[in-house]
Design a binder for these strands. Sequence first.
DNA 1: CAGAGATCTTCCGCCCAGCGGAAGCCCTGG
DNA 2: CCAGGGCTTCCGCTGGGCGGAAGATCTCTG
Lengths: 269, 269
Amino acid sequence: MPRPATPPPSVSARLLSVLEAFGPGSPRLTLSEISRRTGLPLTTAHRLVGELAAWGGLERDGEGRYQIGLRLWEIGALAPRGLGLRETAMPFLEDLYEATHENVQLAVLDGNDSVFLERLSGREAVHVFTRVGGRLPAYATGVGLVMLAYASHEVQEAAISLPLKRFTEKTIPNGAALRRVLADVRRQGFAISDGQIELIAVSVAAPVRGPDDSVVAAISVVVPSENGDAYAHLPAVRAAARGISRALGAPSARRPPGSVRRETFSAPG
Amino acid sequence: MPRPATPPPSVSARLLSVLEAFGPGSPRLTLSEISRRTGLPLTTAHRLVGELAAWGGLERDGEGRYQIGLRLWEIGALAPRGLGLRETAMPFLEDLYEATHENVQLAVLDGNDSVFLERLSGREAVHVFTRVGGRLPAYATGVGLVMLAYASHEVQEAAISLPLKRFTEKTIPNGAALRRVLADVRRQGFAISDGQIELIAVSVAAPVRGPDDSVVAAISVVVPSENGDAYAHLPAVRAAARGISRALGAPSARRPPGSVRRETFSAPG
DNA sequence: CAGAGATCTTCCGCCCAGCGGAAGCCCTGG
DNA sequence: CCAGGGCTTCCGCTGGGCGGAAGATCTCTG
């Protein structure tokens, strides 16, 4: 008897795959939808979903469909690279928003994607594609380019070697071009992403550094391509990024000697 | 041989208990700490933590400790009663903050607790105890009283029958007093919580209603006990709560006939 | 109104995946 | 140097997870 080629996934993996069935496009699912999306037999899905629901990780809505529960939201809120970062950055983001009244974004790097932690957008700001909790390929966003530029060699090479999806005619077309752009970003200390996701939007992004001075996040301001001057916002973006870095305890963002010493980063709460 | 009284927890339950080991006071844990907190043998904890980490639910920091990973943050961001509600409410909360420049809070009810989804606080606003992602007993907070007052009979009775922890001399002392307060809240349509958690803070809270007109959340403004007039903010709080309810599609918050029809609630993204 | 076709739930016996003790590795500190 | 704490790997036993089958509901359709 030939054994099956792939070993069956562990119980834990199956449980986690149930969570993965949910996504931005499908925040509510029926049991059979979960079964189909995960590939798990209906009975198995039923049992796992039951356990998750009993724990509070999933909830049922009025129509009997399942949705991510408060319990999981609370756990997620404990992620230092999620809400933790956001809490520290928020005052600076609000100041930046007040100064520019354009879209203001905070993102971290995960694999080859930028994951957006926060977005402040005014009523009259240009409408952008991003969503809190959403992800976009790093090479195509201003924040992503900044984070890639300062990432480890391996991460950069991985991003460069991957096929690049073309969102618009201005999207960086290939690895060689990306390599040049990253070098530019490193030299300048900031990134400009002009119409790479949507032609109507340009973003200016700057790096946010952590306690060990590595780049842990990035922030950006997004302005309309027409009648918007991205460069005009550069000083404000850099100042805000530096402020957040200092609040996180980045050595390079320390105030000069003689000025008041700031407290270092501590977990919220 | 007598069997052990309690059946051993399922694999899923063990996996989830690992997540529960993390909390506001302990966002980073070593493997042995996780083992101790969950009561799981070190080896078992090791395996479960390994699977979670491989999936991205946990991450290791520089010192080898574990923390909640971005993956879980993303999943949590899909919770309709978490980020979903927050996204809808945010513009109204910002308006409310602009109007008052005091602490503005958004919370939902979970069991007997109010869970805080968002808090906007200015530099000069009174310092409060709450934290995004944190929870406090419902009976002791303004938002909690509002949500309890409109909750199902069972939920109310459960809250009333529970022993009430005394935070300050002004904390509601017992079930009978709580019952009276809830009746008052229902009659008035809002709640005032005066110094029940900390003597220095007073909050005015109003209910937020969902598509079926049930109360799904509450918002409040917190002002200092000294030289702060909570009642002065009541109209603004009620207006904001009504605005959020309308955005969620609550029938009772509909604009009167003849005015423009609003779009109903849809999931963010 | 019967019947087909969904989806959800309960039941139960087989078997292998998960369990966890033991032992070894790598630190740090005395 | 050894002691102690934390982490990782190994491996054989066993009981909990698996999922097919059947039944319960509900909806649509002819």
